[in-house]
Structure formats: structure tokens, C-alpha cells
């Protein structure tokens, strides 16, 4: 889109007033980009038909910086919610899209973000069917915040619940961990370091659907280890199931450059955020086949089985260290803080 034809270079308070400026912004950018029968009704909401069970998930995206290596806040807002719906064992269909823009954001940046939302939505096969745009005074936001809510039809073969997890189930991770968090970290003010680490933000819904088609209720749980990383999600799961989880340190999929960046910054990759990675906890008898299916997919080519569910040490994740020792993997407490030396 050529932003010079829009007639405004920055988003200002008027664009959130509900008046003609708002209509101008919506017509020239939002409706033009997303153009679909639901949205084109330009009504207060949309009416959609669902049969059977459906899953809903909502998420707000407040990331800084809004543009980073491997993506921007726009595609993150789509992929994040699409994946959350998929983790429920559902096929994502529709998204709502709400922007809170800080006045002064360039129209150019806003357009780039909207275009990324469209691209990511198309890739994951979801339609944006309702939305909202608000503008807040400078200093009352951080460039742009996005909220998306996703709706999906639950897969007919899916029975995703931590209640289904059994002792002996295998823990499978779909790819390299800590990529997203370290990509963001490398661009934060005061921490800039040169790297080619890119965010792993992507949609995993088609791979999830393939697994459900093939393995149905043998898949006991899907989770995406976003904030808090792999360690926090696994810890949460052990608490929910009142069983233990054992994982093997040298199985954890970690790309070399990410491992090096974590070493330099004194961060533990187990606690760093991911965006395009998910965990599957599956029945032991299908574990090898699940890994094979995932490895054959672009989104799961680095899949590994990292451990299993055990009756020992209930409520705790225990990692077998590289040197054969054991340690507990506890959940993240606050933000992970870099060490002094």
C-alpha cells in the first residue's frame, strides 16, 4: 500500500474518535486490507455459524520493540492466538483484532503491521471478522498494543486435557527453544548485541491438525511454551497432573547461536520465550510415530522427544544434567534477570 495516498502520515487522537477520521482510517487501511464478507457488513459485530464444540482463546500483545528480526507485533498477534486455539485441539477459523495505538505512530508502521496481520491470517487460514481501533495520548501506551481473540472448531478426534496424561507418556518438543526471546533481547535498548537470531513466530495449526487426524486421542496434551519458557510450562503441567516429569538436558533442542547468546547474557534458555514451538504429551505407544510425522513437517523438522511423565517426584520437573546429575526445574518467578558476573 502506498501510504502517501492516505493523506495522513501519523495516527493521531482523531483517528480513534469514532468520527470521520476513524472511518477514513478503517476504510483506507483496515477494510481494504482484510476485505471479507463478515467484515464488509461493517456492523458492530459478526454472526458466524458453528457446529459442535468450539474453542476460544484471547491474548494481548504488548511487545517492545514492535519490529524485530523474524517478524513484528502484527504477525505475532495472529500466530500467538491461532496457536493457542490449536493447543486446545481446535481448528482456528476466526479472529477478532483490536488495536490500541499511541498517538504519533507513523501510518507507515501501522500499515506494515496491518499487512503482517493479513499475511499471517492468510497463512493460517483464519478470517478477521471483527475488530476495534482506539488511539491513546502519547505516553499512555507504547506505540501499539494488539488484542486478538481466536475461535476454532474442536477437532472431532481431539480429547486434549491434562487429565488424560498417564505415567509413561512422552514429552515431545516441536523445535529449537528460546529463539523468540533471544531475538527480542538482542534488540532491546541497553542489551543490543549483534546476532542473526530470528524469532520463531509462526503458526502451527496445520501440523496440530495433522497430528490429531492421525493420532486422535493418543495426543493427551498440547501446550505452547511462550512466556516463562519450557521450564515454566512443564512445571505448571506437573502441578496440574500431580505426577512428575523427567527430562534429559542433552535432548533439549537448542540452536548453537541461541545457546551462545544465553551463555553470554547469563540467561537460562529453559526460561526464555518461544512463539512457534509447541509441546505434545502423547501416549508412549505412538511417540515414535508422532516424532516422525512432526519431523516430516516444515514446522516440526527439529522435533525431539525430551523426556517422559513419571510417578516419581510428583509435582516436580527433574532434569538429568549433561554430567549425569539431577536438578529440579522450577517455574520462573519474576522476569529472568541477568547476573552480575
Amino acid at each position: 500500500m502506498d501510504t502517501t495516498k492516505l493523506g495522513f502520515d501519523t495516527i493521531n487522537l482523531g483517528h480513534g474518535s469514532g468520527g470521520t477520521m476513524t472511518r477514513d482510517l478503517l476504510d483506507k487501511i483496515i477494510f481494504k486490507t482484510f476485505n471479507n464478507p463478515y467484515l464488509n457488513q461493517k456492523h458492530d459485530g459478526s454472526i458466524v455459524k458453528f457446529t459442535g464444540d468450539f474453542a476460544i482463546s484471547t491474548d494481548s500483545f504488548v511487545i517492545s520493540p514492535i519490529f524485530f528480526k523474524g517478524g513484528n507485533i502484527g504477525e505475532l498477534a495472529v500466530n500467538g492466538t491461532v496457536n493457542d486455539v490449536a493447543m486446545c485441539g481446535a481448528i482456528p477459523k476466526y479472529l477478532s483484532l483490536a488495536f490500541i495505538v499511541e498517538e504519533g505512530l507513523s501510518t507507515d508502521d501501522f500499515t506494515k503491521i496491518v499487512n503482517s496481520v493479513k499475511m499471517a491470517a492468510d497463512k493460517s487460514g483464519v478470517l478477521i471478522i471483527t475488530g476495534d481501533t482506539k488511539v491513546v495520548e502519547r505516553g499512555k501506551g507504547d506505540k501499539i498494543f494488539i488484542n486478538t481473540t481466536g475461535f476454532g472448531e474442536v477437532h472431532p478426534k481431539a480429547n486434549i486435557s491434562s487429565n488424560n496424561i498417564l505415567v509413561g507418556d512422552k514429552i515431545i518438543v516441536s523445535g529449537f527453544i528460546a529463539q523468540h526471546g533471544m531475538a527480542i533481547m538482542s534488540e532491546r535498548e541497553g542489551l543490543e548485541f549483534e546476532s542473526t537470531i530470528v524469532s520463531d513466530t509462526t503458526n502451527v495449526n496445520f501440523l496440530v491438525k495433522e497430528l490429531l487426524d492421525k493420532f486422535g486421542n493418543k495426543i493427551h496434551l498440547f501446550r505452547d511454551p511462550t512466556r516463562g519458557g519450557l521450564a515454566s510450562v512443564l512445571s505448571e503441567i506437573t502441578t496440574d497432573i500431580n505426577k512428575g516429569i523427567t527430562i534429559i538436558e542433552n535432548k533439549i533442542p537448542l540452536e548453537k547461536q541461541v545457546a551462545a547468546a544465553c551463555e553470554i547474557l547469563g540467561l537460562d534458555p529453559m526460561y526464555v520465550a518461544n512463539e512457534g514451538v509447541f509441546i505434545a504429551i502423547v501416549s508412549a505407544d505412538v511417540a515414535d510415530a508422532v516424532v516422525k510425522t512432526m519431523k516430516n513437517s516444515e514446522k516440526g523438522k527439529n522435533t525431539v522427544c525430551i523426556g517422559e511423565v513419571t510417578s516419581e517426584h510428583p509435582n516436580k520437573v527433574v532434569m538429568q544434567s549433561l554430567i549425569g546429575g539431577k536438578r529440579i526445574v522450577s517455574p520462573l518467578i519474576g522476569e529472568q534477570l541477568p547476573r552480575i558476573c
Binding site: 538429568q320 544434567s321 549433561l322 554430567i323 549425569g324 546429575g325 539431577k326 536438578r327 552480575i340 558476573c341
Partner: peptide, 23 residues
């Protein structure tokens, strides 16, 4: 502690943790 070294040592060898934490 992170690498689980303490439990791999013989009971006779006790590690005492020193004051070298700047914080």
C-alpha cells in the same frame, strides 16, 4: 547445584558455599 554435582560427590566431601555472591 544446577548441574547436580553435589549429589555425585561422596558423602565425605562436603561443599560449603562461600560469600562470593556480590548481590
Amino acid at each position: 547445584v544446577k548441574n547436580g554435582v553435589l549429589e555425585l560427590l561422596p558423602e565425605k566431601v562436603r561443599m560449603i558455599h562461600g560469600p562470593g555472591c556480590p548481590v
